[in-house]
Structures are given as structure tokens and as C-alpha cells.
Amino acid sequence: MARKPGATPQAMRNRAAKTAAAMSSGSPLADSAPKKKTPPGQFMREVRAEARKITWTSRKETWITSVMVGIMVVLAAIFFFGVDFIIGWLMGLILQLANAG
């Protein structure tokens, strides 16, 4: 039976060494210099500016989404009940055959 390329023990050791080296070195983000502290007033202005960009869903959109989630939950429950019933029935049939023979 032919081996897959890179399945030799040496190739596996090389990959493990590369992975260990990559994990031990810090990420470029962690190696960068720390950011300067932002004054509290400027921070609050930036927070307010970002909060203004938020778009909220309407009451109608929220209601429609909630109804769709409810429908999907019911459909998933019916599906899993059916699958569980069929598997249980098959297992009972197999056990009856095993006990009868």
C-alpha cells in the first residue's frame, strides 16, 4: 500500500517542529508597541460617535424574525423526534431478531 506524501516520520517531525516554532514566536500584533492612552473625554466622544452608527431593527422585523425562529425550532423538533422514533424502532427490531435467534 502506497504512503501518502509527507507521511514519513521525518516529514512529520519537520511539520511538528515548524508548528512549535510558529506557536512559540509572538504574533506581529503582540510584538508592536503599546498604544497611547486616550483621555476619558475623547474616549466618550468616540463611543458616542460609534453608538450613533448603530442601526436597530424595527418592531416588525424583530417580530418576523422571532416567528421564523419559532417555526424553525418546531420543524427541528419534529425532524429529530422522527429520526429518534425511526432509530428506536429499528433498534427494537434488531434486538427482537437477536433474541429470537
Rank of each mutant, 00 (worst) to 15 (best):
Q96W: 14
V74N: 08
G88A: 03
A51W: 03
I71Y: 02
I86M: 08
I94R: 14
P9D: 11
N99V: 03
Q42F: 01
D31W: 01
G26V: 15
T8D: 13
I71V: 15
S25G: 12
A100K: 13
M23S: 14
I78E: 09
M68N: 07
L93G: 14
K53N: 03
D31M: 11
K4C: 03
Q10F: 12
S66W: 09
A7I: 04
G41K: 15
T62A: 10
G101C: 04
G70D: 04
A20F: 03
S25P: 02
S66M: 05
T57L: 02
A11R: 02
K4T: 09
R48P: 00
T57R: 04
T8F: 05
A7F: 01
Q10A: 15
F85Y: 12
P34W: 00
P40G: 04
G88W: 01
I71E: 12
L95S: 07
Q10G: 03
I78M: 13
T19E: 03
I54E: 06
F43R: 15
A11I: 00
G6K: 08
P34K: 01
V69A: 08
G92I: 01
A100W: 12
L90D: 05
N14I: 05
V47S: 05
M72R: 14
I94W: 13
A33Q: 09
G41E: 15
R15Q: 10
W63Q: 13
R48S: 07
R3P: 09
A98H: 10
L75R: 07
I64R: 14
P28I: 08
I78K: 11
G82Q: 02
L29G: 14
R45C: 04
N14H: 04
G70P: 02
A49D: 10
T19L: 07
I71M: 09
A21G: 07
M23R: 15
K18I: 10
R59C: 02
A7T: 10
V67M: 05
L29I: 08
K53S: 05
G26K: 12
M44N: 11
K4R: 13
T19I: 12
G101P: 10
M1R: 06
F43K: 15
R59P: 01
A98S: 10
V69R: 13
A76K: 05
S25T: 13
S58C: 02
V73S: 11
L93C: 03
A76I: 06
A30K: 04
S66K: 14
G41C: 06
S25V: 14
S25R: 15
A100C: 10
T55W: 06
D84L: 02
I54P: 01
